[in-house]
Protein backbone atom coordinates (compact mmCIF):
# COMPACT_ATOMS: atom_id res chain seq x y z
CA UNK A 1 0.00 0.00 0.00
CA UNK A 2 1.55 3.29 -1.11
CA UNK A 3 0.84 6.29 1.05
CA UNK A 4 0.31 9.57 -0.75
CA UNK A 5 0.56 11.50 2.51
CA UNK A 6 1.72 10.76 5.98
CA UNK A 7 1.40 13.68 8.39
CA UNK A 8 2.88 13.47 11.87
CA UNK A 9 2.47 15.96 14.74
CA UNK A 10 1.52 18.80 12.44
CA UNK A 11 0.64 22.20 13.86
CA UNK A 12 -0.15 25.47 12.16
CA UNK A 13 -0.79 28.93 13.61
CA UNK A 14 -2.80 31.87 12.33
CA UNK A 15 -1.11 34.65 14.29
CA UNK A 16 -0.92 33.51 17.91
CA UNK A 17 -3.86 31.09 17.51
CA UNK A 18 -3.17 27.44 16.83
CA UNK A 19 -5.54 26.67 13.98
CA UNK A 20 -4.49 23.10 13.21
CA UNK A 21 -3.11 20.21 15.22
CA UNK A 22 -2.90 16.83 13.53
CA UNK A 23 -1.20 14.07 15.50
CA UNK A 24 -1.33 11.57 12.64
CA UNK A 25 -3.01 11.36 9.24
CA UNK A 26 -2.27 8.88 6.49
CA UNK A 27 -3.90 8.95 3.06
CA UNK A 28 -3.45 6.10 0.62
CA UNK A 29 -2.43 6.82 -2.98
CA UNK A 30 -5.28 6.51 -5.48
CA UNK A 31 -7.99 7.12 -2.87
CA UNK A 32 -10.75 9.70 -2.86
CA UNK A 33 -10.72 11.20 0.63
CA UNK A 34 -13.08 13.80 2.06
CA UNK A 35 -12.12 16.15 4.89
CA UNK A 36 -15.42 17.05 6.50
CA UNK A 37 -16.00 19.73 9.08
CA UNK A 38 -17.78 23.01 9.75
CA UNK A 39 -16.41 26.39 8.70
CA UNK A 40 -13.24 27.19 10.63
CA UNK A 41 -12.47 23.53 11.34
CA UNK A 42 -9.10 23.79 9.60
CA UNK A 43 -9.96 22.06 6.31
CA UNK A 44 -8.53 24.78 4.06
CA UNK A 45 -5.38 25.09 6.18
CA UNK A 46 -4.85 21.34 5.97
CA UNK A 47 -5.33 21.42 2.18
CA UNK A 48 -2.81 24.27 1.89
CA UNK A 49 -0.28 22.25 3.88
CA UNK A 50 -0.94 19.24 1.65
CA UNK A 51 -0.47 21.44 -1.43
CA UNK A 52 2.81 22.69 0.10
CA UNK A 53 1.76 26.31 -0.39
CA UNK A 54 2.03 26.78 3.38
CA UNK A 55 4.48 25.18 5.78
CA UNK A 56 3.55 23.77 9.18
CA UNK A 57 4.95 25.36 12.34
CA UNK A 58 6.01 21.90 13.49
CA UNK A 59 5.77 18.27 12.45
CA UNK A 60 6.66 16.28 9.36
CA UNK A 61 4.94 15.55 6.07
CA UNK A 62 5.90 12.55 3.96
CA UNK A 63 4.73 12.75 0.35
CA UNK A 64 4.81 9.45 -1.55
CA UNK A 65 7.43 8.21 0.89
CA UNK A 66 9.71 11.25 0.77
CA UNK A 67 10.03 13.70 3.65
CA UNK A 68 9.06 17.15 2.39
CA UNK A 69 11.80 19.66 3.14
CA UNK A 70 12.71 23.08 1.85
CA UNK A 71 14.97 21.65 -0.88
CA UNK A 72 12.31 19.36 -2.46
CA UNK A 73 9.23 21.44 -1.74
CA UNK A 74 8.92 22.89 -5.25
CA UNK A 75 9.19 19.41 -6.79
CA UNK A 76 6.48 18.09 -4.44
CA UNK A 77 4.31 21.16 -5.06
CA UNK A 78 4.47 20.52 -8.79
CA UNK A 79 2.94 17.07 -8.28
CA UNK A 80 -0.16 18.52 -6.59
CA UNK A 81 -3.10 20.41 -8.09
CA UNK A 82 -5.03 22.73 -5.78
CA UNK A 83 -8.50 24.02 -6.58
CA UNK A 84 -9.39 26.89 -4.26
CA UNK A 85 -12.95 27.38 -3.04
CA UNK A 86 -13.07 30.69 -4.90
CA UNK A 87 -10.31 30.33 -7.49
CA UNK A 88 -8.14 33.22 -8.59
CA UNK A 89 -7.93 33.70 -12.35
CA UNK A 90 -5.27 35.90 -13.88
CA UNK A 91 -6.15 39.05 -15.84
CA UNK A 92 -5.84 37.37 -19.19
CA UNK A 93 -7.75 34.94 -21.40
CA UNK A 94 -9.12 31.56 -20.33
CA UNK A 95 -6.55 29.77 -22.50
CA UNK A 96 -3.60 31.69 -21.03
CA UNK A 97 -4.84 30.86 -17.54
CA UNK A 98 -4.98 27.14 -18.32
CA UNK A 99 -1.56 27.25 -20.01
CA UNK A 100 0.14 29.08 -17.14
CA UNK A 101 1.26 26.04 -15.14
CA UNK A 102 2.58 24.42 -18.32
CA UNK A 103 4.52 27.58 -19.17
CA UNK A 104 6.00 27.58 -15.66
CA UNK A 105 7.19 24.00 -16.30
CA UNK A 106 8.81 25.02 -19.58
CA UNK A 107 6.33 23.19 -21.87
CA UNK A 108 6.41 24.65 -25.38
CA UNK A 109 3.64 27.03 -26.37
CA UNK A 110 2.45 24.75 -29.17
CA UNK A 111 2.22 21.62 -27.00
CA UNK A 112 0.79 23.61 -24.10
CA UNK A 113 -1.94 25.05 -26.26
CA UNK A 114 -3.26 21.69 -27.42
CA UNK A 115 -3.06 20.29 -23.86
CA UNK A 116 -4.95 23.30 -22.51
CA UNK A 117 -7.64 23.05 -25.20
CA UNK A 118 -8.12 19.39 -24.35
CA UNK A 119 -8.41 20.20 -20.63
CA UNK A 120 -10.97 22.91 -21.39
CA UNK A 121 -12.99 20.42 -23.40
CA UNK A 122 -12.91 17.95 -20.50
CA UNK A 123 -14.41 20.51 -18.13
CA UNK A 124 -17.05 21.47 -20.72
CA UNK A 125 -15.60 24.84 -21.68
CA UNK A 126 -14.59 24.20 -25.29
CA UNK A 127 -14.91 27.47 -27.20
CA UNK A 128 -14.21 29.60 -24.10
CA UNK A 129 -10.45 29.85 -24.74
CA UNK A 130 -10.36 33.45 -25.95
CA UNK A 131 -12.76 34.85 -23.38
CA UNK A 132 -11.45 37.20 -20.70
CA UNK A 133 -11.17 35.03 -17.58
CA UNK A 134 -12.36 37.79 -15.28
CA UNK A 135 -15.73 37.99 -17.04
CA UNK A 136 -16.72 34.37 -16.37
CA UNK A 137 -19.41 33.27 -13.93
CA UNK A 138 -18.46 31.58 -10.63
CA UNK A 139 -19.11 28.09 -12.00
CA UNK A 140 -17.19 28.76 -15.22
CA UNK A 141 -14.28 30.25 -13.25
CA UNK A 142 -14.09 27.16 -11.11
CA UNK A 143 -14.08 24.90 -14.17
CA UNK A 144 -11.28 26.99 -15.72
CA UNK A 145 -9.31 26.58 -12.48
CA UNK A 146 -10.04 22.85 -12.58
CA UNK A 147 -8.77 22.68 -16.19
CA UNK A 148 -5.68 24.65 -15.09
CA UNK A 149 -5.03 22.06 -12.38
CA UNK A 150 -5.76 18.86 -14.33
CA UNK A 151 -3.79 19.92 -17.40
CA UNK A 152 -0.68 19.48 -15.24
CA UNK A 153 -1.60 15.81 -14.72
CA UNK A 154 -1.00 15.96 -10.96
CA UNK A 155 -0.54 12.90 -8.76
CA UNK A 156 -2.81 14.51 -6.19
CA UNK A 157 -5.77 16.80 -6.70
CA UNK A 158 -6.96 18.88 -3.74
CA UNK A 159 -10.39 20.47 -3.90
CA UNK A 160 -11.61 23.06 -1.41
CA UNK A 161 -15.42 23.07 -1.12
CA UNK A 162 -15.91 22.21 -4.81
CA UNK A 163 -19.71 22.46 -4.64
CA UNK A 164 -20.01 25.69 -2.72
CA UNK A 165 -22.27 28.34 -4.27
CA UNK A 166 -22.02 26.77 -7.72
CA UNK A 167 -24.63 25.96 -10.34
CA UNK A 168 -25.64 22.34 -10.58
CA UNK A 169 -24.05 21.90 -14.03
CA UNK A 170 -20.65 22.99 -12.72
CA UNK A 171 -20.93 20.80 -9.62
CA UNK A 172 -21.84 17.72 -11.68
CA UNK A 173 -19.13 18.36 -14.28
CA UNK A 174 -16.47 18.97 -11.61
CA UNK A 175 -17.44 15.74 -9.85
CA UNK A 176 -17.37 13.73 -13.11
CA UNK A 177 -13.98 15.06 -14.18
CA UNK A 178 -12.43 14.47 -10.76
CA UNK A 179 -13.76 10.94 -10.35
CA UNK A 180 -12.75 10.10 -13.91
CA UNK A 181 -9.21 11.28 -13.17
CA UNK A 182 -9.17 9.11 -10.08
CA UNK A 183 -10.35 6.04 -12.02
CA UNK A 184 -8.34 6.49 -15.21
CA UNK A 185 -5.03 7.86 -13.87
CA UNK A 186 -5.15 6.80 -10.25
CA UNK A 187 -4.99 10.42 -9.13
CA UNK A 188 -5.35 10.75 -5.36
CA UNK A 189 -8.22 13.13 -4.64
CA UNK A 190 -8.73 15.02 -1.40
CA UNK A 191 -11.77 17.22 -1.08
CA UNK A 192 -12.63 19.50 1.81
CA UNK A 193 -16.32 20.03 2.42
CA UNK A 194 -18.74 20.94 5.17
CA UNK A 195 -21.37 18.79 3.47
CA UNK A 196 -21.33 15.21 4.72
CA UNK A 197 -23.76 14.11 1.99
CA UNK A 198 -21.41 15.41 -0.72
CA UNK A 199 -18.49 13.69 0.99
CA UNK A 200 -20.32 10.38 1.07
CA UNK A 201 -21.26 10.72 -2.62
CA UNK A 202 -17.68 11.23 -3.76
CA UNK A 203 -15.27 9.81 -1.23
CA UNK A 204 -14.32 6.32 -0.16
CA UNK A 205 -12.73 7.57 3.06
CA UNK A 206 -13.94 10.38 5.26
CA UNK A 207 -11.89 12.21 7.88
CA UNK A 208 -13.72 14.56 10.22
CA UNK A 209 -12.14 17.81 11.35
CA UNK A 210 -13.25 19.91 14.26
CA UNK A 211 -11.52 22.93 15.78
CA UNK A 212 -8.32 22.11 13.94
CA UNK A 213 -8.21 18.45 14.95
CA UNK A 214 -8.99 15.21 13.16
CA UNK A 215 -11.63 13.55 15.24
CA UNK A 216 -12.23 9.80 15.45
CA UNK A 217 -15.71 8.80 14.29
CA UNK A 218 -18.25 11.22 12.90
CA UNK A 219 -19.19 14.53 14.53
CA UNK A 220 -23.01 14.26 14.64
CA UNK A 221 -22.91 13.19 18.27
CA UNK A 222 -19.94 15.08 19.62
CA UNK A 223 -19.91 15.55 23.39
CA UNK A 224 -17.47 17.41 25.58
CA UNK A 225 -16.80 16.56 29.19
CA UNK A 226 -14.34 14.99 31.61
CA UNK A 227 -13.36 11.56 32.80
CA UNK A 228 -14.45 10.27 36.21
CA UNK A 229 -14.54 7.02 38.18
CA UNK A 230 -10.85 6.38 37.43
CA UNK A 231 -11.30 6.84 33.71
CA UNK A 232 -14.22 4.47 33.22
CA UNK A 233 -16.95 7.14 33.01
CA UNK A 234 -17.25 10.13 30.68
CA UNK A 235 -19.21 12.87 32.42
CA UNK A 236 -20.69 15.58 30.17
CA UNK A 237 -22.23 17.39 33.13
CA UNK A 238 -25.68 16.23 32.05
CA UNK A 239 -25.18 12.50 31.53
CA UNK A 240 -22.45 9.99 32.35
CA UNK A 241 -21.44 7.44 29.73
CA UNK A 242 -19.82 4.17 30.80
CA UNK A 243 -16.70 3.60 28.67
CA UNK A 244 -15.75 0.26 27.09
CA UNK A 245 -12.33 0.44 28.81
CA UNK A 246 -10.54 2.71 31.26
CA UNK A 247 -8.82 5.64 29.59
CA UNK A 248 -6.33 8.11 30.99
CA UNK A 249 -7.09 11.23 28.97
CA UNK A 250 -10.03 12.44 26.87
CA UNK A 251 -11.98 15.68 26.60
CA UNK A 252 -14.36 14.77 23.80
CA UNK A 253 -16.44 11.78 22.85
CA UNK A 254 -18.31 10.88 19.66
CA UNK A 255 -21.03 8.30 19.23
CA UNK A 256 -21.62 6.86 15.76
CA UNK A 257 -25.25 7.65 14.78
CA UNK A 258 -25.55 4.17 13.30
CA UNK A 259 -24.49 2.52 16.55
CA UNK A 260 -27.33 3.74 18.74
CA UNK A 261 -30.26 1.40 19.37
CA UNK A 262 -33.68 3.00 19.64
CA UNK A 263 -36.72 1.46 21.33
CA UNK A 264 -40.17 2.64 22.33
CA UNK A 265 -40.12 0.66 25.55
CA UNK A 266 -37.61 0.36 28.36
CA UNK A 267 -35.20 -2.42 27.27
CA UNK A 268 -35.51 -5.60 29.33
CA UNK A 269 -31.79 -5.84 29.94
CA UNK A 270 -30.82 -2.23 30.53
CA UNK A 271 -27.21 -1.34 29.72
CA UNK A 272 -25.35 1.38 31.67
CA UNK A 273 -25.52 3.42 28.48
CA UNK A 274 -29.29 3.29 28.10
CA UNK A 275 -30.90 6.71 28.37
CA UNK A 276 -34.51 7.80 28.46
CA UNK A 277 -35.51 10.69 26.18
CA UNK A 278 -37.95 12.22 23.72
CA UNK A 279 -37.94 12.46 19.95
CA UNK A 280 -37.29 16.10 19.01
CA UNK A 281 -36.91 15.82 15.24
CA UNK A 282 -37.39 13.42 12.35
CA UNK A 283 -35.74 13.90 8.97
CA UNK A 284 -34.63 12.06 5.86
CA UNK A 285 -31.05 12.29 4.65
CA UNK A 286 -28.99 10.21 2.22
CA UNK A 287 -31.43 7.30 2.18
CA UNK A 288 -31.53 7.17 5.96
CA UNK A 289 -34.04 8.34 8.49
CA UNK A 290 -32.46 10.65 11.02
CA UNK A 291 -34.05 10.80 14.44
CA UNK A 292 -32.93 13.28 17.06
CA UNK A 293 -33.54 12.35 20.67
CA UNK A 294 -33.13 14.62 23.66
CA UNK A 295 -31.85 12.35 26.42
CA UNK A 296 -29.88 14.64 28.67
CA UNK A 297 -27.71 15.33 25.64
CA UNK A 298 -29.11 15.47 22.14
CA UNK A 299 -28.31 12.36 20.08
CA UNK A 300 -28.73 11.84 16.36
CA UNK A 301 -29.64 8.30 15.35
CA UNK A 302 -29.59 6.96 11.81
CA UNK A 303 -32.13 4.30 10.95
CA UNK A 304 -32.60 2.49 7.65
CA UNK A 305 -35.91 3.09 5.89
CA UNK A 306 -36.78 -0.56 6.52
CA UNK A 307 -36.64 -0.12 10.30
CA UNK A 308 -39.78 -1.32 12.13
CA UNK A 309 -39.49 1.68 14.42
CA UNK A 310 -40.16 4.30 11.81
CA UNK A 311 -43.92 4.06 11.15
CA UNK A 312 -44.78 4.62 14.81
CA UNK A 313 -42.30 7.35 15.67
CA UNK A 314 -43.81 10.73 16.54
CA UNK A 315 -42.34 14.02 17.67
CA UNK A 316 -42.34 14.22 21.46
CA UNK A 317 -42.64 10.45 21.83
CA UNK A 318 -40.86 8.88 24.79
CA UNK A 319 -38.06 6.52 23.72
CA UNK A 320 -35.01 4.73 25.12
CA UNK A 321 -31.65 4.82 23.42
CA UNK A 322 -28.72 2.50 24.02
CA UNK A 323 -25.20 3.47 22.96
CA UNK A 324 -23.23 0.58 21.56
CA UNK A 325 -19.69 0.31 22.94
CA UNK A 326 -18.15 -0.04 19.50
CA UNK A 327 -19.73 3.26 18.40
CA UNK A 328 -17.99 5.29 21.11
CA UNK A 329 -14.78 7.17 20.25
CA UNK A 330 -12.76 9.28 22.64
CA UNK A 331 -10.19 11.95 21.98
Amino acid sequence: MTLAYSLTDISFYHGPRKSLEVARLELRAGEVVALVGPNGAGKTTLLHLMAFVESPASGAIQFFGARVMRHNMLTCRRRVGLLLQNPYLFHTTVLSNVMLGLKIRGISKHAGRSMALEALERVGLAGFEHRPAKLLSGGESQRVALARAIVLNPDVLLLDEPANHLDRQSVVRTREVVLDLNRSRGTTVVLATHNLAEAKTMAGTIAHLLQGQIIPGSPENLLSGRLSDSGSLFDTGRIAIRLPARVSDAKHLTVDPGKIALSRHRPASESPNTFHGRVVSLAAENGLATVSVEAGERFQINLPWTSDMLPDLRLGQEVWITLSHDGINLF
Binding site: V53, R77, L82, Y88, F90, G101, I104, R105
Partner: peptide
Amino acid sequence: RLAITCRSLGASVAQQIVL
Protein backbone atom coordinates in the same frame (compact mmCIF):
# COMPACT_ATOMS: atom_id res chain seq x y z
CA ARG B 1 -5.35 34.32 -3.41
CA LEU B 2 -2.81 35.37 -6.05
CA ALA B 3 0.29 34.32 -4.08
CA ILE B 4 -1.23 30.92 -3.18
CA THR B 5 -2.31 30.39 -6.80
CA CYS B 6 1.19 31.17 -8.08
CA ARG B 7 2.74 28.77 -5.58
CA SER B 8 0.19 26.03 -6.26
CA LEU B 9 0.92 26.24 -9.98
CA GLY B 10 4.52 25.40 -9.15
CA ALA B 11 6.10 28.80 -9.75
CA SER B 12 9.61 29.36 -8.38
CA VAL B 13 10.25 32.51 -6.33
CA ALA B 14 11.47 34.41 -9.42
CA GLN B 15 8.46 33.21 -11.44
CA GLN B 16 6.15 34.27 -8.60
CA ILE B 17 7.60 37.81 -8.63
CA VAL B 18 7.12 38.04 -12.40
CA LEU B 19 3.53 36.76 -12.15
